[in-house]
Amino acid sequence: MRKSLLFKITGQLICLAANFLTSIAVVFGTLVVVSAVAAMAAFIYSKLDFPFKKAIYYIILAEMMIPASALIFPLFQIVKGLKINNTPFSLIFKCARIPMRPPNISEII
């Protein structure tokens, strides 16, 4: 392995190439998911008139006002409940904030 791709930390050699490729996969996965969902939702929202359109708009605005630090624990519980810990999809899920049904407390324990 090339010397520039290795990093020494606490006496161990760590290959940075694998970590870099994981980061690239997470970034592009998040980009695809967010772009697809946002484009379809924006098109439907702008072209159609439907009941509670204004209420949904304000709910989306309110969700944007919640700080990310307040969502860390609930998102961890969802990822743990879906049993996708330590996978690239769990990072994509966190970054994209796909609305999913939160697990019941009985499913977590």
Score class of each variant (00 low, 15 high):
residue 56 I to C: 06
residue 35 S to M: 11
residue 19 N to L: 14
residue 61 L to G: 06
residue 70 A to L: 04
residue 17 A to E: 14
residue 93 F to C: 00
residue 51 P to C: 01
residue 81 G to N: 00
residue 4 S to I: 08
residue 105 I to G: 12
residue 59 I to Q: 13
residue 64 M to Q: 11
residue 95 C to M: 15
residue 38 A to P: 00
residue 46 S to W: 08
residue 59 I to V: 14
residue 17 A to V: 13
residue 108 I to K: 09
residue 59 I to S: 12
residue 29 G to V: 07
residue 49 D to G: 09
residue 54 K to P: 05
residue 61 L to W: 12
residue 64 M to W: 08
residue 80 K to R: 09
residue 109 I to E: 09
residue 101 R to Y: 11
residue 44 I to M: 13
residue 80 K to M: 01
residue 59 I to L: 15
residue 91 L to T: 00
residue 83 K to Y: 01
residue 88 P to V: 04
residue 71 L to S: 07
residue 68 A to L: 07
residue 108 I to L: 15
residue 57 Y to S: 11
residue 73 F to L: 08
residue 22 T to V: 12
residue 2 R to I: 08
residue 33 V to A: 03
residue 84 I to M: 00
residue 3 K to H: 05
residue 100 M to A: 15
residue 90 S to V: 07
residue 20 F to H: 13
residue 35 S to A: 09
residue 74 P to I: 00
residue 25 A to T: 02
residue 4 S to D: 07
residue 91 L to P: 00
residue 23 S to H: 10
residue 61 L to E: 03
residue 34 V to R: 01
residue 32 V to G: 02
residue 97 R to H: 13
residue 77 Q to Y: 00
residue 48 L to F: 10
residue 36 A to G: 05
residue 91 L to D: 00
residue 13 L to N: 12
residue 7 F to H: 03
residue 90 S to N: 04
residue 71 L to A: 03
residue 51 P to H: 06
residue 19 N to F: 10
residue 28 F to H: 09
residue 8 K to D: 04
residue 51 P to T: 07
residue 72 I to F: 05
residue 50 F to A: 08
residue 90 S to W: 03
residue 12 Q to E: 05
residue 95 C to I: 06
residue 61 L to Q: 10
residue 55 A to C: 11
residue 104 N to I: 05
residue 50 F to C: 08
residue 44 I to C: 14
residue 105 I to W: 11
residue 11 G to H: 02
residue 41 A to K: 00
residue 17 A to R: 13
residue 105 I to K: 14
residue 82 L to C: 01
residue 40 M to P: 10
residue 68 A to D: 11
residue 16 L to S: 08
residue 58 Y to I: 13
residue 62 A to T: 09
residue 49 D to W: 09
residue 23 S to K: 11
residue 94 K to T: 14
residue 82 L to R: 06
residue 63 E to Q: 12
residue 10 T to L: 14
residue 17 A to C: 12
residue 43 F to W: 13
residue 53 K to Y: 02
residue 28 F to C: 05
residue 108 I to W: 05
residue 18 A to C: 14
residue 37 V to F: 03
residue 104 N to P: 07
residue 52 F to H: 13
residue 108 I to E: 08
residue 104 N to Q: 15
residue 14 I to H: 07
residue 31 L to P: 07
residue 10 T to I: 11
residue 82 L to S: 02
residue 73 F to K: 09
residue 41 A to G: 00
residue 24 I to V: 15
residue 99 P to M: 05
residue 3 K to S: 12
residue 66 I to D: 07
residue 85 N to V: 03
residue 88 P to Q: 01
